[in-house]
Amino acid sequence: MNAQTPMESYETLYARLQAVVARLEAGELPLAETLQLYEQGVQLAAECQRLLDAAELRVRQLQVAEPGLDLLP
């Protein structure tokens, strides 16, 4: 239960993307920083999209005391 789920990874990346967009939209940045932020944002968006494209449903079965309750092979 400690590893990040893909949804958590996505949300983390998306939150960072939002932060980058917000900073760029606020403007008033030096040109070098603008370009750096833009590149960072493009990369984050691509990573988000990659996560969405590559996601595969993870299914786990919990151990339940009841015998004969095997669900997955």
Binding site: T5, P6, V64
Partner: peptide, 27 residues
């Protein structure tokens, strides 16, 4: 498919089913 699914199987019929459902919920 980004979500993780945890399946807690239970008996749905019979006398032991209610206990089994409660156990699954608790897990």
């Amino acid at each position: 498919p980004l979500v993780e699914v945890l399946v807690a199987p239970c008996l749905v019929q019979g006398e032991r089913a209610p206990d089994s459902i409660v156990a699954a919920l608790n897990s």
